[in-house]
Simulated assay, not measured.
Amino acid sequence: MPLFDPITSPQNPRIKNLLKLQQKSSERRAQGLTIIEGLRELTIARGAGIEVAALFVCSELAGAGRQQQLRELVANSVTDWFEVSKAVFEKVAYREGSDGVLALVKPPLLTLEQLPLPAAPLLLVLEAVEKPGNLGAILRTADAAQATAVVVCDPRTDLFNPNAIRSSIGCSFTVPTVATTRAELLAWCRKHGIRTYAAALTEQAVAYTTCNFRGPTALVMGTEADGLTPELRQACDHTIIIPMRGAIDSLNVSTATAILTFEAVRQRENQVPAS
Rank of each mutant, 00 (worst) to 15 (best):
R245G: 09
I35E: 02
P230S: 03
V125L: 10
C58T: 04
R40K: 14
Q67S: 02
T180E: 08
T148H: 06
R182H: 09
R95W: 05
I15V: 14
P155D: 08
D143C: 14
T180S: 10
E231Y: 15
E184K: 14
T148G: 02
A62Y: 00
K24A: 14
L232G: 01
V220G: 12
G193P: 08
L61Q: 08
A199Y: 07
G32M: 11
I194M: 04
G97K: 08
D5S: 13
A200H: 13
Q204M: 01
F173H: 00
A54F: 04
G97R: 01
G136Y: 09
T229M: 09
R245S: 11
I248N: 13
R156Y: 13
T8Q: 12
V206L: 13
A264N: 09
Q69F: 02
G170N: 01
C58R: 06
L135C: 07
F160P: 01
I242P: 08
V150M: 11
V78K: 15
T157Q: 00
D80W: 09
E127Y: 09
L251F: 15
L55C: 05
A200M: 09
R14P: 04
T229D: 07
R14Y: 08
A218Y: 08
G227Y: 10
E130K: 08
T141G: 06
G63D: 03
A120P: 02
P6T: 01
D143F: 13
T180W: 11
F173L: 02
Y208D: 03
Q234R: 14
I165S: 05
I7S: 04
T223Q: 08
Q68F: 01
E51C: 13
H238T: 04
N76D: 13
I240R: 02
E72T: 10
T202H: 03
T217S: 14
I7P: 02
L33T: 04
H238K: 12
T177C: 15
A103E: 03
T79D: 00
A264D: 05
R266E: 12
Q31M: 14
K106L: 05
A147K: 02
W188D: 04
L102Y: 02
I169P: 03
L139R: 10
R40C: 09
Q271C: 15
R71L: 11
L55N: 04
T8M: 10
L109N: 13
T239R: 03
E72P: 07
N270V: 08
S77G: 06
A144H: 00
M244W: 07
T217I: 11
L126S: 07
Q67F: 01
P216R: 10
T8W: 07
V220Q: 11
L109M: 14
V78D: 15
Q31D: 14
A142E: 00
P107Q: 10
P162N: 05
A142C: 10
L19D: 01
I240H: 04
V92W: 02
R46N: 10
